[in-house]
Design a protein around this nucleic acid. Structure first.
Length: 196
DNA sequence: TGGACGATTGACT
DNA sequence: GTCAATCGTCCAA
């Protein structure tokens, strides 16, 4: 499998597709964890479901900043969500990392999650917990620090579907996923279609 | 300054 | 299938 260049300044839909197969590396005192992205969702300024829809706020300002940075926020007062800011600076675009499959440090993830198997990382809140995503990662570079984004291998089968868990706009096919068993909300896949 | 709500998860019927 | 947990964010007042 050839490695791919990853250009995070590309528009959000391209980036959401390109992030499939890329890897996230988490270094912590407990050890090293590595996962491979299998599911993403695109969010943009022109998008009622996006935090950037009504312009920058204290929370969403990172989405309007330069690409290549993490956007981290808390959801339902419980779970942390991990996003990658993309597009041009000034555009409120980011890709939500919804699911990934463990590559390295699986036992450490099991320890943090109190679970094993696909429920380790098959959802955005689960992935953040498995990787011990901290709120202070918000606004930091994906190329340096203890949470890193790495180019991965090509993904042969890509599918797309409406996004999960939103109420505002269910018509856009802005969720992208692979055939991995670590993809979340498999029931939603019935609404999906093959992209390539 | 009050209060409705959320890019979710896990437990339970 | 239903539902509670739990709190930061945002906007109306």
């Amino acid at each position: 499998m050839p490695t791919r260049e990853l250009d995070l300044s590309q528009p959000v839909l391209e980036t959401a597709r390109n992030l499939l197969g890329c890897e996230i590396v988490r270094r912590s005192p407990e050890g090293k964890r590595r996962v491979r992205i299998v599911e993403t969702e695109a969010y943009s300024e022109d998008d009622p479901a996006s935090h950037s829809y009504n312009g920058p706020t204290p929370r969403s300002r990172v989405m309007f900043g330069p690409p290549g940075h993490w956007y981290v926020y808390k959801c339902y007062g419980i779970h942390w969500m991990l996003n990658v800011v993309c597009g041009s600076e000034g555009d409120g675009e980011a890709v939500l990392i919804r699911a990934a499959e463990p590559v390295r440090g699986e036992s450490l993830m099991e320890q943090r999650r109190g679970r094993s198997g696909s429920s380790l990382t098959n959802g955005p809140g689960k992935l953040a917990e498995a990787l011990d995503v901290q709120p202070d990662f918000d606004g930091t570079s994906v190329r340096s620090g203890s949470l890193l984004l790495r180019t991965g291998t090509d993904v042969s089968d890509v599918f797309e579907s409406p996004r999960v868990g939103i109420t505002e706009d269910k018509t856009r096919f802005w969720r992208f996923y692979t055939s991995s068993s670590y993809v979340s909300d498999v029931s939603q896949n019935d609404l999906g279609r093959r992209r390539n």
